[in-house]
Simulated scan of single mutants.
Amino acid sequence: MIRKLYVIITTSAALGNALSLTNQTKFKRSPVGGIVTVRAGYAQTPFPEWLTEFTGLTEWPGIDPPYIPMDFIDFSKVPDYKSYPQGVCGVNPRESCSFDCDKCVEPDDVYTCSKLSQTFDDGPSPATEKLLESLDHPTTFFNLGINIVNFPDTYKKILDAGHLVGTHTWSHPFMPSLTNEQIVAQLEWSIWAMNATGNHYPKWFRPPYGAIDNRVRAISRMFGLQAVLWDHDTMDWQLIAEDSNLRTEEQVYHDVQLWKRGKRGLILEHDGSEKTVNVGINVSKLIGDDQLTVAQCVGGIDYIHQYAQK
Score class of each variant (00 low, 15 high):
V32Q: 06
V32I: 11
G33Y: 07
G33F: 06
G34M: 01
I35A: 00
I35W: 01
V36A: 01
V36G: 01
V36E: 08
T37N: 09
G41I: 14
G41T: 13
Y42K: 00
A43T: 15
A43E: 13
Q44I: 14
Q44N: 08
T45D: 05
P48C: 13
P48Q: 11
P48R: 11
P48E: 12
E49A: 15
E49P: 03
E49R: 15
W50I: 12
W50G: 02
W50P: 06
L51T: 14
L51F: 12
T52F: 01
E53T: 14
E53S: 14
F54E: 13
T55K: 03
T55F: 02
T55W: 04
G56A: 07
G56M: 07
L57R: 15
L57M: 14
L57D: 07
E59Y: 08
E59D: 13
E59F: 06
W60L: 10
W60C: 06
P61Y: 12
G62Q: 13
G62H: 10
I63W: 08
I63E: 14
I63A: 10
P65A: 09
P66Q: 15
Y67P: 02
P69F: 11
P69N: 12
P69Y: 12
P69I: 14
M70H: 06
M70F: 02
M70V: 09
M70I: 12
D71M: 01
D71F: 09
D71H: 14
F72Q: 11
F72N: 14
I73H: 09
I73Y: 07
I73K: 07
D74A: 09
F75W: 10
F75K: 11
S76F: 07
S76L: 06
K77F: 12
V78A: 05
V78Q: 03
V78P: 08
P79F: 05
D80I: 00
Y81P: 03
Y81V: 04
K82M: 05
K82W: 00
K82F: 05
K82Q: 11
P85Q: 11
P85A: 13
P85M: 11
Q86R: 07
Q86S: 06
G87N: 05
V88Q: 06
V88R: 05
C89M: 02
C89E: 01
C89V: 07
V91H: 03
N92D: 13
N92Q: 09
P93V: 08
R94S: 13
R94G: 05
R94M: 12
E95C: 01
S96L: 02
S96H: 03
C97Y: 03
S98I: 04
F99W: 04
D100P: 03
